[in-house]
Simulated scan of single mutants.
Amino acid sequence: MNLQKIFVPVVCLLLLGGAWRSYGWQGVALVGGGLMMWVLLHYTRLLTILKRAADRPIGFVASAVMLNAKLRKGMTLMHVIAMTRSLGALQSPKDEQPEFYRWTDGGDSQVTCEFRGGKLVGWTLLRPSPEPDPAPGEAPPAP
């Protein structure tokens, strides 16, 4: 079970209760205003990330190799979307765990990320194999 889903509301209630005990309604108004500002800051950040991602093609990243180097276990899907500035192309069935998202760059390198409960648990980098150079005196293959 995700402890954060319980911990954050309990801390908020404790803060509101402590404010009530210490300063009455004025304390509740002050702490409530601070909590509302915190929620609005997170909401604004979420909308900014999604607005930037909406301007790019789904599943596209400037460099899959650089994305691979920046990824760390435990990152949230929102953090990865903020890094890539693009929504990932969903590779797994919708609303099933684990979720797999893929980002591809212009050179056909791909990073496939695995998320469980919105947290990054693993990823793989797939790079296309380079075409062999023709031997001297041989004609290059026809397209």
Rank of each mutant, 00 (worst) to 15 (best):
N2M: 12
L3I: 12
Q4R: 08
I6T: 10
V8T: 06
V8L: 12
P9M: 05
C12K: 05
C12T: 00
L13V: 13
L14Y: 04
L15Y: 00
L15G: 13
L16Q: 02
G17H: 02
G17I: 05
G17C: 09
G18E: 03
G18F: 01
A19K: 06
Y23M: 05
G24W: 05
W25D: 07
W25I: 08
Q26K: 09
Q26E: 09
G27Q: 08
G27L: 10
V28N: 04
V28R: 09
L30P: 02
L30H: 01
V31I: 13
V31K: 02
G34E: 03
L35G: 04
W38V: 11
V39F: 15
L40W: 13
L40Q: 12
L40D: 11
L41C: 15
L41D: 12
T44K: 15
R45S: 13
L46Y: 15
L46I: 06
L46P: 00
I49N: 01
K51S: 13
A53P: 07
A54M: 07
A54G: 06
I58A: 06
I58W: 07
I58T: 15
F60C: 07
V61F: 00
V61A: 04
A62H: 11
A62I: 12
S63M: 05
M66S: 14
A69D: 09
A69E: 11
K70F: 06
L71T: 03
L71G: 00
G74K: 08
M75R: 01
L77N: 07
L77F: 09
H79W: 01
H79Q: 15
V80K: 00
A82V: 00
R85Y: 02
R85S: 13
R85V: 03
S86L: 03
S86H: 02
L87Q: 09
L87E: 09
G88V: 04
G88P: 04
A89M: 07
A89V: 01
L90T: 05
D95E: 14
Q97S: 14
E99D: 01
F100C: 04
Y101R: 15
G106I: 02
G106Q: 08
G107I: 00
G107M: 03
S109Y: 02
C113W: 03
C113V: 15
F115P: 03
F115R: 01
G117L: 04
G117E: 08
K119G: 00
K119F: 06
G122H: 01
W123C: 10
T124C: 01
L125H: 10
L126R: 11
R127W: 00
R127V: 13
P128D: 04
S129D: 12
S129L: 13
E131T: 11
P132M: 06
P132D: 02
D133Q: 14
D133S: 10
G137P: 07
A139E: 15
A142E: 15
